[in-house]
Computed example of a mutant assay.
Amino acid sequence: MSINKYWILKAKQLNNAATPDELSELSLLSACMDADTRVDNGLHNIWHAQSYTSNELDRERWMMLLSARVPEISLQQPEVLSVKTRRSRKLVFLISLIIISLLTAGGALFFHFIRPVPAHEISAIRGTKTRATLPDGSVVNLNAGSRLLYQNDYGQKERHLLLSGEAFFDVSRIPDVPFAVTTGNITLRAYGSSSFNLCAYPEDNNISASLTEGCIQLIYMQPQGNTSVVLQSGQKIILHKDPQHPGMYQAQWSQIKHSAGEIQESAWKDNMLVVENERFEHLATRLERWYDVKIIFNNSLLRQLTFSSVSKGKNVQEMLSVLSRNSGKFSYIYNPTAKTVTIYAK
């Protein structure tokens, strides 16, 4: 894995210039690096600080040391410095300082954190869903815009997966071979035969796990430190990203919901849309992934519409027609060439 690639994507994220696909890749690279979350949080906090000062001599010293210790990241790399702004220069210096601090404090320990690049990938691009059987017999359904990675030695001593996006897992029971899914800095462990849904799109403001059968453990960060919780069948946890503490979460517990015989949290794998009091702007994000379209509201008030329904549609027109008929408050225009849907009030 290229260390440089990670920092380039990190720079784009801090500049709010990363695309959803780049955020997805950054999430997976972060899991591969297995780096200390405090380092990432420290960079985020300094970057967003109101003021920052450093002198030219300090910057020159740090960059010379960086170039000597980590040739992959140097002043000669135009891709890092291509954005000619004060913030990009500050980022180069801050990244240099953090990497050198890691090298100085831990030496080779920094590179010890870097895992081999996963050898296998299962993906579902926007507008598609994918179902696959893993080498251990476990079955995974991937929702649109999702990626799942694993190593060649999967199933030997452990079963470790990296997820970006949303997936439903039916885990096969294999004693003494633990099953774990990592997404960003969150790890989920399954025990015995378990069925669960994990939704973790990097661009979303929350991550959710819902357990249909079995037992799972979730390990995540809170301001007071690492937290480990156990879910039993029928339970759901939503981890809301803490805007004041990047990389940390606040938990909200609930039960999985049933509507018209469908489990709301995992109905997507059967091409069903089950919503309860969901705002149109949030629902639109899901539909954009499912059907690979861009939804545009020409009236901001329409974003606040809420829906409670069970719907099924082969394409975005069928799905929106059902929602439009149920609400009676909006119509839409679909442009198949541009892949856009414009929502307007009736």
Rank of each mutant, 00 (worst) to 15 (best):
T133C: 10
T133G: 12
T133Q: 07
L134G: 00
L134C: 10
D136S: 13
G137H: 02
S138M: 00
S138V: 00
S138R: 06
S138K: 11
V139L: 09
L142I: 11
N143R: 14
N143I: 04
A144E: 15
G145E: 01
S146E: 05
S146Q: 12
R147L: 00
Q151Y: 07
Q151V: 04
D153F: 08
D153I: 08
D153G: 01
Y154C: 06
Y154M: 09
G155P: 04
Q156W: 15
Q156H: 12
E158Q: 14
R159V: 00
R159T: 14
H160D: 11
L161T: 09
S164K: 06
S164L: 08
S164Y: 11
G165N: 01
E166K: 01
A167V: 01
A167F: 03
D170Y: 09
D170V: 10
I174C: 01
D176E: 03
D176T: 02
P178V: 04
A180D: 08
A180E: 06
A180T: 12
A180S: 13
A180V: 02
V181H: 09
T182F: 11
T183N: 03
T183D: 05
N185K: 10
I186K: 09
I186R: 04
I186M: 09
T187P: 13
L188P: 03
L188V: 15
R189E: 15
R189S: 14
A190H: 03
A190K: 09
Y191V: 12
Y191W: 03
G192R: 00
G192C: 05
G192Y: 00
S193N: 07
S194P: 08
S195H: 14
N197W: 06
L198H: 02
L198E: 01
P202Q: 01
P202R: 09
P202F: 04
E203F: 04
E203N: 11
N205C: 13
N205R: 10
N205V: 15
S208I: 01
A209P: 00
L211D: 00
T212V: 14
T212E: 07
C215F: 08
I216L: 14
L218N: 05
L218V: 13
I219Q: 13
M221D: 14
Q222L: 05
P223E: 04
Q224C: 04
G225S: 13
N226H: 13
T227W: 00
T227M: 15
V229S: 06
V229I: 11
V229L: 06
V229M: 00
V230K: 01
L231H: 02
Q232Y: 08
S233M: 06
S233F: 08
Q235Y: 13
Q235F: 08
Q235W: 13
K236C: 04
I238E: 15
H240G: 15
H240Y: 05
H240D: 15
K241N: 10
D242L: 03
P243R: 01
Y249D: 03
Y249M: 12
Q250C: 13
A251H: 00
A251Q: 11
A251S: 07
Q252A: 15
Q252D: 10
Q252F: 09
W253K: 10
Q255I: 06
Q255P: 02
Q255C: 05
K257T: 07
K257A: 03
H258A: 02
S259T: 07
S259H: 13
A260T: 13
G261D: 01
G261R: 10
I263K: 08
I263E: 03
